[in-house]
Design a protein around this nucleic acid. Structure first.
Length: 485
RNA sequence: GGGUCGAUAGCUCAAUGGUAGAGCAGCAUCCUUUUAAGUUGUUGGUUCCGGGUUCGAAUCCCGGUCGACCCA
């Protein structure tokens, strides 16, 4: 039927797919031009997709939607003429993309509307839009055909628009502080900087195997060696692991490195960044409609308070608090196995001691840290890339920022002693083992300034700041299995 | 990888083992300030796929595909 309309238009000498318009304004900018008591004095050209269609005899109201939102259009037979009005009624369908020119006025219900003087069909929708009231709710179709979700579900439009604004604001925030954005390789010989299974690939011309990066860290540190004292990268990492509400095989990471700083400097930086994003980008309102710094956490239902001081606590203190055992860290491995089991968790005697302890942290502590919390002084086995704490050789100078029960940002005082770095790589154990990048060690031997470094999972940050349920809701096209037909 | 649940018209959803339906969209009709517009009429189905049980399967059983949630 829609194809018939298209054929009819073409037969009449008009091909919508060869037409175009020159919009003068986006929808909301256009509406802002209307002056009260002065109807039909301002002319605008706007364009967008037809999303509601209310034809009533000789006059009709329709709405189009563009990047900024929707704007109502008013078509009259006596303005357009019999023939054009007929074309409007007969040839257009919901979902079509049109450009229109007309004057702004306010309807008797108070909605600023464009009184149409001319219109052009610039793209014909050959398939119908999903239902207008319920939108698109089939999760699979929402993800596979995200464009439909974004057309009809305002909530998705807003959430994913907010993500774009968050990423943009992060860039500006860092650039204002003289950080340089750099781009480092996705194809790497060694998947360093984290412990994760990488995707493997092969370069034909070089006849070389590569992996897709699992972290940005080691190349950004080479840039510190290079004398770029403040660098950051916002880039995609890839991990060949499970898919869940918090994991997508490709995800976006921000990593920031600042020479002559340390993990405490990163603490200030990340808190300033997040409060800026909440106050100036997300701009939540409280129950009375006043600006707030609280965002509702979808999983727990609690309000997360981003303003004020954030809790800071040592990893060991959290473990001692949870186990009720002040001597936990001097217990034998067998005692730790028993202790973990006593807390109702599975404990495998084959695990390393730090893994037993970390099971308690991961299962019982982290998920309950809803308010922003800096967990500091993690066991050194959890990361080989940080500096050892001066007065406690079992911990490292790092924090993990936990919000909403999720690790949002780890930060370190970066290890810059090449010999210590090498021995820490070699001493790695358990699940946390990272591959050794010898070229990176070579770079360190040339001298890297002392530095603070930090990573922020942008997807997880967006989950928190938009109150989303799942990582899939903040990624435009989340990974799904192939749908063969 | 394991468990639970789900897949029916373009979309949102119904349907005791007994003729597969509604709303919206579509099509036709009336309507010159509507707000999920309204009016009258109407088209539309490989019930995810493949087997099985049965006189008879959207419905019960087995296998598969895809998805959601939980667990690892």
């Amino acid at each position: 039927m829609r194809r018939q309309k298209l054929a009819d238009l073409r037969a009449a000498g008009f091909d919508p797919f060869r037409a175009n318009v020159a919009p003068t304004h986006f929808s909301q900018d256009a509406k802002a031009l209307h002056v009260d008591e002065q109807d039909n004095t301002v002319t605008v050209t706007v364009a967008g997709r037809l999303v509601t269609f209310r034809v009533q005899g000789g006059s009709s109201f329709v709405k189009i939607q563009d990047q900024q939102g929707q704007i109502q259009l008013y078509f009259r037979k006596d303005v357009l003429g019999e023939e054009r009005y007929g074309v409007f009624k007969k040839s257009l369908d919901l979902g079509d993309i049109i450009g229109v020119t007309g004057t702004l006025f306010k309807t008797k219900t108070g909605e600023i509307t464009v009184r149409i003087e001319s219109f052009t069909l610039v793209s014909k929708a050959l398939r119908p839009l999903p239902e207008k009231w319920h939108g698109l709710s089939d999760a699979e179709q929402v993800y596979r055909q995200r464009y439909l979700d974004l057309i009809v579900n305002q909530e998705s439009r807003h959430r994913l628009m907010t993500r774009a604004r968050i990423v943009s604001a992060v860039r500006r925030f860092l650039e204002d502080r003289q950080f340089l954005e750099v781009e480092t390789p996705v194809l790497q010989s060694v998947a360093g900087g984290a412990a994760a299974r990488p995707f493997q690939t092969h370069h034909n011309a070089l006849n070389t195997d590569f992996v897709l990066r699992i972290s940005l860290e080691l190349y950004l540190k080479r840039m510190l060696v290079a004398g770029y004292d403040r660098v950051f990268e916002i880039g995609r990492n890839f991990r060949n692991e499970g898919v869940s509400r918090r994991h997508n095989p490709e995800f976006t990471m921000l990593e920031v490195y600042q020479a002559y700083s340390d993990y405490r400097g990163m603490m200030t930086l990340v808190r300033d960044l997040l409060t800026h994003l909440v106050r100036d980008v997300v701009k939540p309102l409280d129950a009375d409609g006043q600006p707030s710094t609280k965002i509702k956490h979808a999983q727990s239902g609690q309000e997360i308070e981003f303003g004020g001081e954030w809790r800071e606590v040592k990893y060991k203190d959290l473990i001692i608090e949870k186990t009720g055992d002040s001597e936990w860290f001097s217990r034998s491995k067998d005692e730790k196995v028993a202790g973990v089991q006593k807390l109702g968790l599975y404990a495998d005697p084959k695990w390393e001691e730090f893994e037993l302890t970390n099971e308690i942290f991961g299962k019982l502590i982290e998920p309950n840290l809803i308010q922003p919390t800096f967990v500091t002084h993690l066991p050194k086995e959890l990361c080989p890339l940080a500096k050892i704490t001066q007065d406690d050789a079992t911990t490292i100078d790092v924090f993990e920022l936990i919000i909403g029960g999720m690790e949002v940002a780890p930060a370190y005082s970066e290890q810059n002693d090449p010999d210590v770095q090498r021995s820490m790589f070699e001493a790695q154990a358990g699940e946390e083992q990272q591959k050794i990048d010898h070229d990176f060690l070579l770079a360190l031997e040339h001298g890297m300034p002392p530095a603070g470094g930090m990573g922020i999972g942008i997807d997880r940050l967006c989950i928190l700041l938009t109150g989303a349920e799942s990582i899939r809701d903040v990624i435009l096209f989340p990974q799904l299995r192939n749908a063969l037909n």
